[in-house]
C-alpha cells in the first residue's frame, strides 16, 4: 500500500488554521493596543512574567506557537508552488525547519522564565 505523510503534515496545518482564525486576531489586537500606548494590564512585566511562569501556560504558549508557525509554513510552501517554484522538497524542508526551530526556541525561553 502506498504510504503518505500527508496526514501528518496536514493535521497540524488544519489545527493551526483553526487556532489562528479564532485566536490570532485578538492577540495581535493586544500587541497593537500596547504599540499605540494602551498596553493591556497583562503586558506589564510582573503580570506577564507571573502568567508565563505557570507550566500549563508554558505548554499552551508552545502549542499556539507551533501550530501557528506550522500552518503558516504549510501555506507558504503551497503558495511557493502556486507561484511557480517547483523545488517543493527544498521549500518544505526550509519552512517546516523554521517552524520547528522557532517552537523549540520558544520552549527554551519559557524554561528560563
Amino acid at each position: 500500500m502506498a504510504k503518505s505523510n500527508k496526514p501528518i503534515v496536514w493535521g497540524p496545518f488544519a489545527a493551526g488554521g483553526t487556532l489562528t482564525a479564532f485566536l490570532t486576531p485578538v492577540l495581535i489586537l493586544l500587541t497593537l493596543l500596547a504599540a499605540l500606548g494602551h498596553a493591556p494590564d497583562l503586558l506589564a512585566y510582573d503580570r506577564m512574567h507571573a502568567f508565563a511562569s505557570h507550566w500549563l501556560v508554558k505548554l499552551a504558549i508552545v502549542g499556539v506557537v507551533f501550530l501557528s508557525l506550522w500552518s503558516a509554513a504549510h501555506r507558504l510552501r503551497i503558495t511557493c508552488y502556486d507561484l511557480g517554484v517547483r523545488a517543493d522538497t527544498l521549500v518544505a524542508t526550509i519552512v517546516y525547519a523554521i517552524a520547528v526551530a522557532a517552537s523549540v526556541a520558544a520552549a527554551a525561553y519559557l524554561l528560563l522564565i
Binding site: 500587541t31 506557537v65 501557528s68 503558516a72 501555506r75 507558504l76 526556541a105 525561553y109
Partner: peptide, 26 residues
C-alpha cells in the same frame, strides 16, 4: 486566493516576533 494565502506571512511573522518577545521576557 493569493491574498488569503499571503496571510501566512503575517501570522508567521507576528508569531516569530512573539517568540522574540518571550526571549526578552526571560
Amino acid at each position: 486566493y493569493l491574498l488569503r494565502e499571503l496571510s501566512c506571512l503575517f501570522i508567521g511573522g507576528w508569531t516569530l516576533m512573539m517568540v522574540w518577545g518571550l526571549a526578552r521576557l526571560a
